[in-house]
């Protein structure tokens, strides 16, 4: 089984995200950058499948120079090799353009299965996995919390509102991760040392054979006009009553007569 994992470097979810001076991007300096948590699940699942079935795990990422840290993290967890799409022409890509870059990069690799996060927890687009599958003309199964590789097929438990649907697709296929799939391992110290020597190839937009006008800031179809902070709530109103019963009565009164929610 040759498995490709798509990863992205994103701000840690505990980070405070601030808007930059241009009003359309975020301040990148004071942020702790990590592997997208859903991609950690993808790397872990790929490693488990390789451990069970043999084969290889290749990690692919699009991003600035710094994104190589995330590829190295995946290599330290145990992936075999990395591919970094790194090109100023690719910067500022939206989700669709990112998927074009990733699909072009993956096309040059031998693969039976692609695993990626259901979404990046930065822009929350939920888009790249499905678009890569479309561009490669392979089936996709999203939001998977259990996957079994069968003979030439993959069987995935897909989490939907109010339940789970078990879906099968022939390989090659792509699936995206949901929490519950596994518990990602930490990179061990020997793993981190080994990762430094693992192959990590860098490709440009031209090397991928893509039209520069279709990717990067130039290729964006979704244009960010403004970023803003969510509307502030009014100051909290504390209920201070003598007893739990009186507190509850006051809350229910507010919700019933003022907010009209009960």
């Amino acid at each position: 089984m040759d498995i490709v994992v798509l990863v992205k470097q994103v701000p840690d979810t505990e980070s405070l995200v601030q808007i930059a001076g241009d009003g359309v991007s975020i301040k990148k300096e004071e942020i702790k950058w990590v592997m997208n948590p859903y991609d950690e699940l993808a790397v872990e699942e790929a490693l488990r499948i390789r451990e069970a079935k043999g084969g290889s795990v290749t990690v692919v990422s699009v991003g600035p120079q710094k994104a190589q840290e995330t590829i190295r993290t995946a290599l330290a967890m145990g992936a075999d090799k990395g591919l970094h799409v790194h090109d100023p022409l690719a910067e500022g890509s939206d989700a669709l353009a990112t998927a074009k870059l990733l699909a072009a990069a993956v096309k040059g690799l031998a693969f039976d299965l692609i695993i990626c996060g259901q979404r990046g927890v930065d822009e929350d687009n939920y888009q790249v996995g499905a678009a890569v599958a479309e561009f490669l003309n392979i089936p996709q199964i999203s939001l998977v919390n259990k996957a079994e590789v069968l003979d030439g097929r993959i069987r995935c438990h897909r989490v939907v509102e109010g339940g789970t649907v078990v879906v099968e697709a022939p390989l090659p296929a792509l699936f995206t991760t949901q929490r519950g799939l596994n518990e990602p391992r930490y990179a061990s110290l020997p793993g981190i040392m080994k990762a430094k020597k693992k192959p990590l190839e860098v490709k440009t937009v031209a090397e991928l054979g893509l039209d520069p006008a279709a990717v990067g800031a130039a290729g964006r179809k979704v244009l960010i006009q403004a970023l803003r902070l969510p509307p502030e709530r009014k100051a909290v109103r504390m209920i201070r009553a003598e007893t739990p019963a009186a507190t509850a009565a006051e809350l229910v009164r507010i919700l019933h007569t003022e907010a009209k929610l009960i």
Partner: peptide, 23 residues
């Protein structure tokens, strides 16, 4: 933008080479 809608919207947008504003 449900489990189904997000999945379908992303696939269709790629097929149409169209921009998608999610959620």
């Amino acid at each position: 933008a449900t489990a189904q809608g997000k999945d379908l919207a992303a696939r269709l947008a790629a097929r149409w080479d169209a921009g998608l504003a999610m959620d």
